[in-house]
Amino acid sequence: MSKYLLDKFLYTVDRDPELVERYREDPAGTVEWWEAEMANRILNVIDAEKTTWLSFTEDERKALREHDHVTLFQMGAHPFLTLTLFIAMFERDHGPLEYQKAYGKAMEHISMPYPDIST
């Protein structure tokens, strides 16, 4: 399991307006493209010097494909990254703070201590 790679996906999508829309509309296609093309790119490094070893597990792919923020939290993905990206994708479909509250309520069965987010 790679918390780092989950975080890298959330980070690189969240900071790019086009990718935010693409992940909202086509999560499965975006995750497949991102893992093939982006997962092993070191940011600020040319393609010829790509990383050779990063990939998702099937569980991670599934959580990302299904926009499953609860499972991402339980996997130890950084909660700030997940929340920020998911607000960007889905707040627009809801009234003020409605999405943020529902996002928390969907996790109410999770108790302390929370999963470790160290990478």
Binding site: F73, P79, F80, L83, K101, Y103, G104, K105, M107, Y114
Partner: peptide, 10 residues
């Protein structure tokens, strides 16, 4: 402060 967890936005 809680962000992205069950206790957020209370």
């Amino acid at each position: 402060l809680e962000l992205g967890g069950p206790r957020q936005f209370g």
